[in-house]
């Protein structure tokens, strides 16, 4: 299929020049797309790894935090828990921004924590550890959300770009090459025919001149 040639109205030199120009453009486009695909694929692989690692890390952290929480709750009254959770953090906000990688807009989530004012000596130290542990989990979940959405977006773009690269690589460029080759052969053939014709005419003219 790739070796098919394009349908030409007339096999002329002008057509050959036009085809060569078209081939050059196709090659440029192919290079640009191929580079973009490479960057996006790198990003996709990195994001995929990050997602897997993040999920495992979050899972482990949750188990650790739960253990800490159970241990702490054995000697801390529930009302102290509640009071501490009210004073520990003043505000927790997530800023949603965007970053752009190789033409794809990806989300960027940055979390901001404002520590509350409290007397640390008034609460058991393990309470703070539990709180920090859960804060870490939350931070990782935010990062995971960002990574997973990015993974989907990049995957979608990779699919699109790959289709274009394949079309150029397996269809458009080979067809153009085959057509150019066909035209060249056609011109060479025409030249050979002309040469033979001229020789033949020369022979006939010489024969006539003798007579």
């Amino acid at each position: 299929m790739s070796q098919q040639i394009l349908r030409l109205a007339r096999p002329t030199k002008i057509e050959l020049i036009r085809l060569r120009r078209r081939l050059a453009t196709a090659r440029r486009l192919h290079r640009v797309l191929r580079d973009r695909l490479l960057i996006l694929t790198q990003e996709l692989v990195a994001l995929y790894r990050e997602v897997v690692e993040s999920r495992l890390r979050i899972h482990e952290e949750i188990i650790r935090c739960e253990k800490e929480l159970v241990r702490t709750s054995s000697y801390v009254a529930p009302w102290i828990f509640e009071e501490f959770s009210n004073v520990r953090i003043k505000s927790f906000s997530v800023v949603l921004g965007s970053r752009i990688v190789a033409g794809v807009r990806l989300p960027l989530l940055e979390h901001e924590v404002v520590e509350g004012h409290y007397d640390p000596s008034a609460y058991p130290i393990t309470l703070k550890e539990v709180s920090e542990c859960y804060e870490g989990v939350l931070r990782n979940i935010i990062r995971l959300a960002e990574t997973e959405i990015s993974l989907l977006e990049v995957g979608r773009e990779v699919q699109k770009v790959k289709r274009k690269v394949n079309a150029l690589e397996n269809l458009i460029i080979p067809r153009l090459r085959a057509t150019i080759k066909y035209l060249r052969m056609k011109f060479e053939e025409r030249e050979r025919e002309d040469k033979v014709r001229r020789k033949r005419i020369k022979q006939i003219l010489t024969r006539k001149a003798r007579i």
């Binding site: 453009t25 440029r28 486009l29 640009v32 033409g103 274009k164």
Partner: peptide
């Protein structure tokens, strides 16, 4: 096809450099 390829190249450059 000439125009399509030129258009795609231009668009691709625009996408890559839009940011």
């Amino acid at each position: 096809e000439d125009k399509t390829l030129e258009y795609l190249l231009e668009r691709e450059l625009r996408v890559v450099n839009s940011y």
